[in-house]
């Protein structure tokens, strides 16, 4: 299935954009339509972009350890706008945060070392699982 749309976002002050760009290209090359927000977004701007761009999933890239604060806020803003799309988190995320992230509604967490194939497969699986629920 080609043509799934994903919004890739950097939220907050974290300027590390190597990973987000590499992942955006991986997904593009795997057949996704990728929209990249650029740096320094807020939970509100990301949620609004997700609505405007009519995407099937949102991917957040976080490397500054602010994920426990910011990721739940992004999920909240997205749900507030009535979107039930999966929110995927990529970045430096210690194991001890995984459970709490699942509880606040982060669908999938991708950590350093994930291969291109794994990234594309897991994003696709998250979207497919969400579509089945609908």
């Amino acid at each position: 299935m080609a043509g799934e749309r994903i919004l890739i976002a950097k939220v907050g002050l974290d300027g590390h954009d190597r990973g987000v760009k590499v992942v955006a290209r991986i997904l593009r090359d795997a057949g996704f339509e990728v929209v990249y927000t650029g740096l320094f977004q807020t939970p509100e701007t990301v949620a609004a972009a997700a609505v405007d761009e009519d995407v099937d999933a949102v991917g957040l890239s976080m490397l500054s350890a602010a994920h426990m604060t910011l990721a739940p806020l992004v999920v909240e803003e997205i749900r507030k706008r009535g979107l039930e799309i999966p929110v995927i988190l990529g970045g430096i995320v210690p194991d001890h945060d995984l459970e709490a992230l699942a509880e606040v509604g982060i669908d999938t967490v991708l950590t350093p070392g994930a291969s291109a194939e794994e990234i594309a497969d897991r994003v696709r699986a998250a979207i497919a699982a969400n579509n089945e629920e609908d």
Binding site: G12, L13, S64, M68, T69, L70
Partner: peptide
């Protein structure tokens, strides 16, 4: 930390979750 690197204060809304982290 990130707020300092970007020249904003710890009580700025954008600093949420970043104060003293990195």
């Amino acid at each position: 930390d990130m707020p300092t690197l970007l020249g904003i204060d710890s009580d700025n809304a954008m600093s949420l979750g970043e104060v003293g982290r990195c």
